[in-house]
Design a protein around this nucleic acid. Structure first.
Length: 862
RNA sequence: GCCAGUGUGGUGGAAUUGGUAGACACGACGGAUUCAAAAUCCGUUGCAGCAAUGUGUGCCGGUUCGAGUCCGGCCACUGGUACCA
């Protein structure tokens, strides 16, 4: 055995061993319990970033742990290969998106291999391959036939200079990122999936997901936003104007109604009102993003129309307001300024009436509606026949009255909107539809699938190349045979990522999207691991898609992911300098020298190249824009994969954000060196002894107790809590104990051997390469990937005495060691007799005594 | 704005069910080794105090024998906000 730890030598050897032995190949074995562990597949952006490394290390730790539990483990990997960055790269570097993507995939695959992740590469997939997306196209045509797909006009960000649709990310301060032109909202026809048809299931089934983080379930529930409300109508110009409200109890407090700027009523009124027309025009210049809509200055104008209240028959003015969305519901809202804060602010700004119609349930609460809206539920006032009613009764009474008048009905409303899947982009799955002048949009027949995206294209920066490619567009209608045009929009890339987990389970199926037998063998995924940023969209779309596939008979489960772990982000320090033109240059932490005080606090930061100061910009998510990414490759080259994996798992619990620290990485390496040395020194004794439990002295029993306590804790931390940081800390404690254990006796060596083997096994999911090598040194000709997880010997945990804490009035005043089975009386009197305890009791009276056996005693005196 | 989180020493974090705040590391300081340095090993390390002790988990208040943990109200930061993935 080599005396020094050399990761650059042993890591490739271990990886080759796993390849030669097919260590991570999976197959459908009916006799074994399965475990499907999946990490969210990466977008092939160029090279791995630290977030990937963290994500995939967590997944690999769980997979390897489950394999040691004897499960048949599937851990696949693939590529979320369609997306916007490939098109940007095409424009910036004049390289075709396909070529760029495939090159990135090849490089990133080699990086994943170098990290030693135990993937079954036979199941690798890339979503940009026609053999993958053809099934997505096929599935979409099935949904069309089921009526779960429809086409409607929807708003996009339009860049009037570049004549192209922009993503929200590409609109900065209301302007296109390339052209700098003010963007405009524009309506274009787009395809939608009826996710709202599944809204109830998507809410209700959240209760089944017991092993999902509570916060994710709550966010999804709130996102879907199921609420009971009333649809009612106001009469405007002799026609009914429909609105929805969840608060019909406040109906008598309506003082105006507001419609969207694009509402027909507003457009009609604008014809004779130039000021209104220019306001409506101005409302176009806001990005299609909820956050922008919600935080912009709320503005409006009166339309010069009145609406008749459905119950009182009184009239209220009709306004148009920039915050009312044409795409939601009817594009109109009723406003109750006294009991809705947004309405209150709008009414206050424009001098509209505010009529209070609720008082608090509790008279202690002071309400002053001249200061703010009162938004709690309360008791009705100023509401005629409905006065003195509470919320539930008022809700029923008012909706019943509306129904009697034929002016409204109760209904369930969802915040969730149907899923718009059309993108006016090139690098995506072509939507399998042919537009025929006489037949309308027609699904591409199954035998003509896939509709292959041409990969050999030129990018001139003016939108998707296939939108001008006649050879792609021109076709014939599958129904009538007349000349027709192909749809040139592509799918939202969330489509591909909504079902890839199922395709891995049936990867080799050439004639079907999924072979139910294979898919159901593995599904649902036992453990899904990925970033918290996917808590809503990706995870909701996947859940929806799974239900769609279930209803198509492709899978038999209701949910795709049994257990979910959302990892936190990887952060690093940022540094910058302000340029003369007040723009900011971000400087990589790699190029910065730090000066610290004697406590390690940073005093100043300077640029290595010129020694002049730079400004610390705080700790933020590693990103290109802040130039604070630490390249994992540099770290792997310098320290090896095991050190990087260990640091990643040790620095923070997986769900928290993690700060990168160079020195902590060196600490991780130091620990592995110590573990190596420990094993080396043990082998240098050149003695192998059989453990005899009847022959152990106290010191040997204590080390052995520590070993089994550690096995117990690490098992619990890895499997139940998924806090790998505390698992590692426990193993570090154990190695510290082994180092201090100087005992060359036969049983001393035997106990030490058991302890070292436990450390190696417990660490093997986290640092598999060093574990592979050390295990082979201790047990020649054996392979640690076939060794089971160590078992706890409960008898080793037994303890005759325990330490208890004694406190007086809640402050710790002493500690004592006492028999584990001592009764409360003995414990209390032993504690009371302690000198330091007596000192604090002195002449005071004992008011209360609390004894928690094996833990503490608290004596309350006064 | 709305929804969901987070906040503990100089730093990352631990405290698993309301029961010893600071495990395990990093850094710093002191020492050993070395011609010297690196590496390694040993020790100290929340703050104040010679000590006894006091004090301390973002801020304000509450419940409790006992609160980092539970409740109410704030502040700051982070993620998501439907076309970044």
């Amino acid at each position: 055995m080599n005396e020094t730890y050399q990761p650059q030598t042993i890591e490739p050897q271990a990886q080759q061993h796993w390849i030669d032995n097919n260590s991570f190949k999976s197959s459908e074995d009916a006799n074994k319990e399965t475990f499907y562990c999946l990490s969210m597949f990466p977008y092939p952006s160029g090279k791995l970033h630290m977030g990937h490394v963290r994500n995939y290390t967590i997944g690999d730790v769980i997979s390897r742990y489950q394999k040691m539990q004897g499960k048949n483990v599937l851990q696949p990997m693939g590529w979320d290969a369609f997306g916007l960055p490939a098109e940007n790269a095409a424009m910036n570097n004049n390289v075709a998106p396909a070529k760029w993507t495939y090159e990135n995939i090849n490089y990133m695959r080699s990086q994943l291999e170098r990290m030693g992740f135990g993937y079954d590469w036979d199941r690798e997939l890339a979503t940009c391959h026609p053999e993958y997306y053809r099934w997505e196209q096929w599935f979409f045509t099935k949904l069309m036939k089921k009526g779960l797909v429809y086409k409607k006009d929807a708003e996009v960000n339009w860049d009037p200079v570049d004549q192209t649709v922009l993503a929200n990310e590409q609109v900065i301060d209301g302007r296109g990122w390339r052209s700098g032109a003010l963007i405009e909202r524009k309506k274009i026809p787009q395809w939608f999936l009826k996710i709202t048809d599944y809204a109830d299931q998507l809410v209700d089934d959240l209760d089944k997901l017991e092993d999902w983080p509570e916060q994710v379930r709550t966010q999804q529930k709130n996102w879907i936003g199921r609420s009971n409300g009333v649809e009612l109508s106001f009469e405007v110009n002799g026609a009914e104007l429909e609105v929805f409200t969840t608060r019909p109890d406040t109906l008598m407090g309506v003082t105006y109604v507001a419609v969207a700027a694009q509402h027909p009523l507003a457009l009609e009124a604008a014809k004779s009102n130039p000021e209104l027309a220019s306001f409506i025009d101005e409302c176009k210049n806001i990005k299609v993003a909820e956050a922008d809509m919600a935080t912009m200055e709320k503005k409006g104008m009166p339309l010069g129309l009145t609406a008749i209240h459905p119950i009182t028959g009184k009239t209220v003015p009709v306004w148009t307001a920039n915050f009312v969305l044409m795409d939601y519901g009817s594009g109109a809202v009723m406003a109750v300024p006294a009991h809705d804060q947004r309405d209150w602010e709008f009414a206050t700004k424009y001098g509209l009436d505010i009529i209070q119609v609720l008082r608090p349930n509790n008279d202690d609460v002071l309400v002053d509606i001249t200061e703010a809206a009162f938004t709690d539920k309360g008791i009705l006032i100023n509401s005629g026949d409905f006065d003195d009613l509470e919320f539930d009764i008022a809700f029923k009474a008012i909706s019943a009255e509306l129904e009697r008048l034929g002016k409204g009905k109760t209904t369930i409303n969802y915040r969730l909107r149907d899923w718009g899947v059309s993108r006016q982009r090139y690098w995506g799955t072509p939507i399998p539809v042919i537009n025929c002048a006489s037949c309308g949009p027609v699904a591409v027949p199954e035998e003509q699938l896939p509709v292959v995206l041409p990969e050999d294209v030129e990018f001139d920066g003016s939108g998707s190349p296939i939108k001008k490619m006649r050879s792609f567009i021109d076709t014939t209608c599958p129904e009538c045979g007349a000349a027709a045009e192909r749809e040139t929009d592509t799918f939202d890339t969330f489509m591909e990522s909504s079902w890839y987990y199922a395709r891995y389970a049936s990867r080799s199926s050439e004639n079907a999207m999924l072979e139910p037998e294979k898919a159901n063998y593995w599904l649902p995924v036992d453990q899904y691991v990925g970033g918290i940023e996917h808590a809503i969209l990706h995870l909701l779309y996947s859940r929806f898609f799974h239900k769609l596939m279930r209803d198509e008979g492709l899978v038999d489960s209701d949910e795709p992911f049994k257990r979910l772990l959302c990892q936190g982000m990887v952060l690093a320090d940022t540094y910058y300098r302000e340029n003369d033109d007040s723009s900011i240059s971000w400087i990589s932490p790699n190029d910065v020298d730090l000066e610290t005080d004697d406590k390690g606090r940073t005093l100043s930061a300077t640029l290595k190249t010129d020694g002049l100061p730079v400004v610390h910009g705080g700790v933020t998510k590693m990103s290109k824009s802040k130039n604070n990414g630490i390249d994992p490759q540099m770290m792997i080259d310098k320290y090896g994969a095991d050190t990087v994996r260990l640091f990643m798992m040790f620095a923070a619990p997986p769900i928290q954000s993690l700060e990168w620290s160079d020195s902590a990485v060196e600490g991780a390496q130091r620990f592995l060196k110590r573990l190596w040395k420990l094993t080396f020194d043990h082998l240098a004794l050149d003695k192998s002894m059989t453990l005899d439990l009847t022959e152990l002295n106290q010191q040997q029993s204590e080390l052995r107790r520590k070993v089994h306590q550690t096995i117990k804790k690490v098992s619990h931390d890895v499997e139940v809590r998924q806090t790998f940081n505390t698992a590692i800390a426990a193993v570090m404690e154990l190695t510290n104990n082994i180092s201090k254990f100087k005992d060359d006796s036969d049983q001393g060596i035997a106990v030490q051997r058991e302890a070292i083997e436990a450390c190696i096994l417990l660490l093997s999911p986290i640092t598999p390469h060093i574990a592979h090598q050390l295990w082979a040194e201790l047990n020649p000709q054996t392979d640690i990937t076939t060794v089971p997880w160590p078992a706890v010997d409960e008898s080793a945990l037994m303890q005759a005495n325990v330490e208890m804490v004694i406190s007086v009035n809640g402050k710790v005043r002493g500690k004592m060691t006492i028999e584990a089975d001592a009764d409360e009386d003995l414990i209390f009197h032993t504690a009371l007799a302690m000198e330091n305890v007596q000192k604090f009791i002195a002449d005071k009276t004992i008011r209360k005594k609390i004894v928690v056996p094996n833990k503490l005693v608290n004596i309350v005196v006064a």
